[in-house]
């Protein structure tokens, strides 16, 4: 993951875009995460005969090469499906700028190198306005926590953890295992007994009927 992300803006000026819209449940039935880009915003992008809807922004030729999605409040609320993030990244989206994000979506995005940046309403509206003709490029500078567009430089706040992980792209599991395995073992030795004991046995009995 680079320290800077640069790309053409795709405006999606709507509040409350939930993960069911980003990828419908029908496309959650696969066993892998690759190749979901074609289902991104499926019901908004295609009609019932699977023909592209002309009025949807992803079908507008001016935005074909866009890689930075800009939306409004509560982007990614709803279902925890990480497939929403996989569909965005597989399509080629590198960053989403919005006023706020659904918590689970936000967490999922960090783990897949999708930069989700929170910006104030006035800035979001300005970017959306300037992006209308399909000619606006933004740069997201993760190192200096700045968004640069149309000659403007806007600072943003991001959790240090998210910023670090977006830049490094390091596996969280490997990190936890190598730094905290001992602490986890120690915690398990001191667990309250009602949390762990008898549990196995009772469950085995139950499963065997």
């Amino acid at each position: 993951m680079p320290e800077k992300i640069e790309g053409k803006v795709i405006p999606l000026p709507q509040d409350n875009i939930d993960t069911d819209q980003i990828i419908p449940a029908q496309f959650l039935r696969f066993l892998k995460k690759e190749g979901l880009g074609k289902y991104l915003f499926y019901r908004w992008r295609y009609d019932e005969n699977e023909r592209p809807k002309a009025d949807f922004v992803l079908n507008d030729p001016r935005f074909k090469d866009g890689t930075v999605l800009v939306s409004k409040k509560n982007f990614g609320i709803g279902s925890s499906r990480e497939n929403a993030v996989w569909a965005l990244t597989d399509y080629g989206i590198k960053a989403v700028l919005a006023e706020s994000f659904g918590d689970i979506f936000y967490g999922n995005s960090i783990k897949n190198g999708l930069a989700c940046i929170k910006l104030p309403e006035s800035i979001i509206n300005d970017i959306i306005e300037k992006a209308k003709e399909g000619k606006l490029t933004v740069t997201i500078d993760l190192l200096n926590k700045k968004v640069v567009y149309a000659g403007k430089e806007i600072s943003f706040e991001i959790e240090e953890y998210a910023r670090r992980r977006l830049i490094s792209g390091e596996s969280e599991i490997e990190y936890t295992l190598s730094h905290y395995s001992k602490k986890i073992e120690e915690y398990e030795r001191n667990m309250k007994s009602f949390v762990k004991t008898n549990f196995n046995e009772a469950l085995r009995k139950l499963l065997e009927g």
């Binding site: 995460k33 925890s80 990480e82 689970i104 999922n108 783990k111 897949n112 969280e172």
Partner: peptide, 9 residues
């Protein structure tokens, strides 16, 4: 509620 990367974690 967690995503699939977290399920693995």
């Amino acid at each position: 509620g967690i995503g699939t990367s977290e399920v693995e974690h």
